[in-house]
């Protein structure tokens, strides 16, 4: 469904005079393959490059090198006349800012319909159908985002992303701004929709507990590169990379069973090490050996 091949992207670092003084390697040789109907998790902290990957898949950034293929076809190849937006859509992290505050829900959901030439006369009915799909009453089309709760806003964003029936959906931390009980309902909705419509998900998150339960395949990103990938059970059950182990050990959990699952990380001066410290420790140990 989606294939990334040796994807690289660097951002120039400029000094106060706008002169390039260096480069930040945001994405470093990332390759992965997502099968149709799969739920693929991309875990990482801020600065790991997970958002840059999402933005490149969406065409908001151009990769320096490497390829992005959807159904075996490069996203820059438009020869079949199918717009990029019909193949892949995205649900943004913060539903508060991904919906235009001055436009009604109906207007927002109709944006992709408008953009992809959906007949004007059938639009209200389509908007109602889409809202129904995300379990919102049709009357919500008349409302403004500030009249909705966070969970309702995210449902609207999902309806909007599904308006032109893409097969692939990029979910960029879709529930990190929501309450935990709302999060569970949104995840239920995404799961149901995925089954009904045969969707493929690329799920980007820093919430490992959520990822463990939602994604089937997982890749862990650290500083632009994939340090570990595998099935959700393998990566979480038997993490092999130090960074993955630290990430899992850092998750606040609510039960003893979960706590027992967390790897034990050696403390440095009575404190948990940073990822850099931990990786430096390992490298030093490797040199010793």
């Amino acid at each position: 469904m989606l294939e990334l091949k040796n994807l690289c992207k660097a951002f120039p670092i400029r000094n106060a005079f706008g002169r390039k003084t260096g480069a930040l390697q945001a994405v470093d040789n990332v390759s992965m393959t997502i099968a149709p109907g799969d739920i693929y998790g991309l875990a990482g902290e801020s600065g790991s490059g997970k958002s840059t990957i999402a933005r490149m898949i969406m065409g908001l950034e151009t990769p320096d090198s490497g390829e992005i293929l959807i159904d075996g076809r490069s996203i820059h190849d438009r020869s079949d006349g199918v717009a990029h937006g019909r193949r892949v859509q995205m649900v943004f992290q913060n539903p508060g800012s991904s919906l235009n505050p001055r436009r009604t829900v109906g207007q927002s959901v109709a944006v992709p319909l408008d953009a992809h030439g959906f007949p004007r006369s059938k639009r209200p009915a389509r908007v109602a159908t889409l809202l129904d799909m995300v379990q919102l009453p049709a009357a919500f089309a008349e409302r403004y985002p500030h009249e909705l709760s966070g969970g309702q806003k995210q449902r609207v964003a999902i309806a909007r992303a599904l308006a032109v029936e893409p097969k692939l959906l990029v979910l960029d931390e879709p529930t990190s701004a929501l309450d935990v009980s709302v999060q569970a309902k949104v995840m239920d909705l995404l799961t149901d929709l995925g089954r009904q419509m045969g969707l493929t998900y690329l799920f980007i998150s820093h919430d490992l507990s959520l990822m463990r339960n939602f994604a089937r395949e997982v890749s862990v990103l650290y500083r632009g590169g994939i340090v570990e990938s595998g099935t959700s059970d393998t990566v979480f059950g038997h993490p092999s990379h130090d960074y993955t182990r630290l990430l899992i050990a850092s998750v606040p959990v609510i039960s003893a069973e979960e706590a027992a699952l967390r790897p034990v990380i050696p403390l440095i001066d009575g404190e948990l090490p940073t990822p850099e410290q931990l990786i430096a420790l390992r490298q030093a140990a490797d040199r010793q050996a």
Partner: peptide, 9 residues
Amino acid sequence: FIEAAETLG
């Protein structure tokens, strides 16, 4: 939301 509109085409 501007970025969202762009990705929506």
